[in-house]
C-alpha cells in the first residue's frame, strides 16, 4: 500500500494554513502537501505518497549507493550484455 514516487519541488506556497508544493514528475506537475516535510526547498527531490511528501531524497546517499553498486566489479561483457546501455543513454538518444 505504499506507492511512492520521487519528484522535484518546483515552488512552494501556503493554502488553508497548509504548506503545499508544486512537484514535477517527468514532465507533469502536481500539488503535494508538505505538512509532513516542512523544511524542503525548491530543487529538492521528495518522495510522494497519496499527495503527501513523506521523505526528502538524500542526494549524497543516492550517489553513495550507486557508486557502491557500480563497484560490484562486473562488466557488461561478463554479464553477457550488449555494450549498448540502458536507460540513461537511451534517453539521450530520444
Amino acid at each position: 500500500m505504499c506507492l511512492g514516487i520521487p519528484g522535484e519541488v518546483m515552488s512552494r506556497r501556503t493554502q488553508d494554513g497548509l504548506g503545499f508544493a508544486t512537484v514535477r514528475f517527468g514532465s507533469i506537475e502536481r500539488e503535494v502537501c508538505l505538512e509532513c516535510l516542512p523544511d524542503v526547498k525548491v530543487g529538492d527531490f521528495v518522495l510522494v505518497h497519496v499527495g503527501f511528501a513523506i521523505s526528502r531524497l538524500d542526494e549524497e546517499e543516492a550517489r553513495r549507493t550507486l557508486a557502491a553498486l557500480a563497484e560490484l566489479g562486473l562488466d557488461r561483457a561478463e554479464l553477457g550484455l550488449d555494450p549498448a546501455p540502458s536507460v540513461a543513454e537511451k534517453e539521450d538518444a530520444a
Binding site: F25, G26, S27
Partner: peptide
C-alpha cells in the same frame, strides 16, 4: 519493454497512479 515508446508526461502520470 525497453522498446515501448512512451512520452514523458504519460510516463510521469502512470508512475504516480500505479
Amino acid at each position: 519493454e525497453a522498446a515501448l515508446p512512451i512520452n514523458d508526461a504519460v510516463r510521469g502520470a502512470c508512475e504516480m497512479l500505479g
